[in-house]
């Protein structure tokens, strides 16, 4: 079966800040596959290349070499993004629009109009518990409420693949639980979720498979339960070991 998400020897280099310096390699020949219906954790310390990889997948950056595909379509083609939902780490939306207007706007970008769009907006506002504030402009929203709007917009097209960049970052425990619930629910619906996170406990709870990257290189990829079993440790310890951090210090 064709993987939902695939990168083939993906390489991203940033131009040097000073003339004469070598370019900074953010992603080194990353090859990865995410299959339909799995919840895939993309892990790595800060600066490992997670966000850069996501930027390539979403078309924000052009790779220096290699290719990336969503649903078998090269990410350079905007059609590749027709069936995905994306929640950025920091959610900022048009502050002068209401939650309902923002969702309507994004629905239109997916070609949804009329009754179908309104039905989805109602359902999503209910899902993220923002029905009471649907006609309030976002500038009056708290950070948690804005994050929930972000989640709703990521689901507006009923995506088959959801790309979440640090989805629980900055959320209170209740908000995190809500996000976890939504991921679980999507998994039950057979959707594919690809997300990066520093919350390894959370990853261990919801992910089927994980990939750990460090300094732009893929260090390991596999099922969470297998990794835990093989290394005889929890995911956090496995992660620290793989990135070369002395586990005794961590302990």
């Amino acid at each position: 079966m064709e993987p939902i998400l695939r990168t083939d020897r993906l390489r991203v280099e940033y131009p040097p800040s000073r003339r004469g310096d070598p370019p900074k390699v953010a992603v080194k020949d990353l090859s990865l596959e995410v299959r339909q219906g799995e919840v895939f954790g993309f892990l790595g310390p800060n600066g490992a290349g997670k966000t850069t990889t996501m930027s390539v997948l979403l078309g924000f950056l052009a790779p220096t070499a290699g290719e990336a595909y969503l649903f078998g379509v090269n990410v350079r083609n905007p059609i590749a993004r027709q069936r995905i939902g994306y929640l950025p780490e920091l959610t900022y939306y048009y502050r002068f629009l209401t939650a309902e207007e923002i969702l309507r706007f994004y629905a239109r970008l997916f070609g949804l109009n009329g009754v179908e769009a309104e039905r989805r907006i109602d359902r999503l506002l209910k899902l993220v518990e923002l029905e009471h504030a649907r006609n309030r402009q976002l500038k009056h929203y708290s950070k948690g409420m804005q994050q929930r709007v972000g989640l709703a917009q990521a689901l507006i097209n009923d995506p088959d693949l959801l790309i979440l960049d640090e989805p629980t970052s900055g959320l209170d425990p209740l908000g995190r639980m809500k996000v976890r619930e939504i991921i679980q629910r999507l998994k039950q619906e057979g959707k594919t979720v690809f997300f990066s996170s520093h919350e390894l406990g959370e990853v261990e709870t919801v992910c089927d498979r994980v990939a750990i990257v460090h300094q732009g290189e893929l260090k390991v990829v596999g099922r969470v339960d297998e990794l835990v079993r093989t290394h005889q440790a929890n995911l956090e310890q496995v992660f620290l070991k793989i990135i070369g951090y002395p586990t005794c210090l961590a302990a």
Partner: peptide
């Protein structure tokens, strides 16, 4: 600046 470009370009928009 407000990073709204990212959710926007993550949609099928060129």
């Amino acid at each position: 600046e407000s990073r709204t470009i990212f959710p926007l370009l993550a949609k099928p928009v060129t």
